[in-house]
C-alpha cells in the first residue's frame, strides 16, 4: 500500500511534466493542424539552461527555473519566426512543416552535444534526496514541487485560454484560422503568442526533467515522444485530452515499471500508441480533422 502510494505520487509528477509538454503540442495542433516536431528543442534548451544557471550564474533554483522558462520561450519564438512563419505565409503543405520540424530538432540536439558533450550533467540543487514522510511513505520534496508548479501552470493556461480576450481569439482561431483573420484578428501575432506559451511550458518541463533525472542530450527527445503519445491518446488538438492522456500514460508507465519490469515501460507507451491508433484514432477527446477541402 505504501509502495502504491509512492508510485501514485511519482506518476503525478511525471504526468505533470508530460502534460506541460503535451499541452504545447495540442495548442499548436489545434491552431495549425500540424505536429511541432521541433518542440523537443525548447525542452532540451530548458534543461541545459537550468544547468548553466545553477553552475555559473545563481544558486537559487527558482531563478534558474525562470531562466529556463525564458530560454524555452525565446527558442520557440525563434523557431516559429525563422522556420514556420515563412512556410505558413506561403501556405505550404502541412508535411513540409513536419519535416522542417524534424530538421530543427536534429540541429538542436546535436548543437547541445557539441557544446556540452553527451555526458550526463547533474543539476546542483539543494533538494538532493530530501523527502518528507506522509502516510508512511517517503515522498521526495522535488516531486511535490514539480506537482505544484505543473498544476499552477496548467491551471494558468486553462484560465488564459478560457477567460481572457486573447484566449478567446485563440479559441476562435482554432475553429477556423482564416475566418478569424477575416474578422480582423492579427492571427500572426497570436501564433507567436501560442509558440511563446508552448515554449515557456516546454522550458519548465525541461528544467523539471533535468532536475529529476540529470540533463543529457537525448533526454528531451525521449520525453517529448512520450508527451506526444499522451497528446495522441487524449486526442490531437484537445487540451483537456492532452492532460488526461499524460496522466493515463504516466500512471501506466509507473505501474508497469514498479510492478512488472522497467524494461517493459517504453514498450507499453508505444504499444498504447499503436493500440489507440488502431482502435480509436481520434483519441479520447479528439475531434475529427480531415485533409479534404
Amino acid at each position: 500500500m505504501v509502495l502504491f502510494f509512492q508510485q501514485i505520487i511519482n506518476a503525478l509528477a511525471i504526468g505533470g511534466i508530460y502534460a506541460l509538454m503535451s499541452v504545447g503540442y495540442a495548442l499548436i495542433y489545434s491552431l495549425l493542424r500540424f505536429t511541432n516536431f521541433a518542440h523537443s528543442v525548447a525542452v532540451t534548451f530548458g534543461s541545459y539552461a537550468i544547468y548553466v544557471a545553477l553552475t555559473h550564474i545563481t544558486s537559487n533554483f527558482y531563478l534558474g527555473l525562470i531562466f529556463g522558462v525564458l530560454v524555452g520561450a525565446v527558442i520557440a519564438l525563434i523557431i516559429e519566426l525563422t522556420a514556420y512563419k515563412p512556410l505558413l505565409i506561403k501556405n505550404s503543405a502541412r508535411s513540409s512543416l513536419t519535416i522542417i520540424g524534424l530538421g530543427i530538432s536534429t540541429i538542436g540536439t546535436n548543437m547541445i552535444i557539441l557544446i556540452f558533450s553527451s555526458r550526463f550533467k547533474v543539476i546542483p540543487t539543494d533538494f538532493g534526496g530530501k523527502s518528507i514522510q506522509l502516510l508512511g511513505a517517503y515522498i521526495s520534496v522535488l516531486d511535490i514541487i514539480i506537482i505544484a508548479i505543473c498544476l499552477v501552470m496548467l491551471l494558468g493556461v486553462f484560465l488564459f485560454i478560457n477567460k481572457t480576450r486573447t484566449g478567446l481569439a485563440i479559441r476562435a482561431a482554432s475553429h477556423d484560422l482564416d475566418s478569424t483573420a477575416l474578422m480582423g484578428v492579427d492571427v500572426q501575432k497570436f501564433l507567436s503568442i501560442i509558440f511563446i506559451l508552448a515554449g515557456a511550458m516546454a522550458g519548465i518541463a525541461g528544467v523539471m526533467l533535468a532536475t529529476k533525472y540529470q540533463a543529457y542530450p537525448s533526454l528531451a527527445t525521449t520525453m517529448t515522444n512520450k508527451s506526444f503519445i499522451s497528446s495522441v491518446v487524449g486526442g490531437l488538438g484537445s487540451l483537456g485530452g492532452a492532460v488526461a492522456g499524460s496522466f493515463i500514460l504516466s500512471t501506466g508507465e509507473v505501474m508497469i515499471s514498479g510492478y512488472v519490469s522497467s524494461e517493459l515501460r517504453d514498450l507499453f507507451s508505444y504499444g498504447l500508441l499503436i493500440l489507440v491508433l488502431l482502435v480509436r484514432p481520434y483519441g479520447l477527446m479528439g475531434k475529427r480533422f480531415d485533409d479534404k477541402a
Binding site: 493542424r33 505536429t35 513536419t98 506526444f228 495522441v232 508505444y270 504499444g271 500508441l273 480533422f289
Partner: peptide, 16 residues
C-alpha cells in the same frame, strides 16, 4: 484518415 495519424503510427511502429 488524416495524414498526421499515419506519421504518428509509423513513428510508433518503428520505435516499438
Amino acid at each position: 484518415i488524416n495524414g498526421d495519424y499515419f506519421i504518428i503510427a509509423t513513428m510508433g511502429i518503428g520505435e516499438a
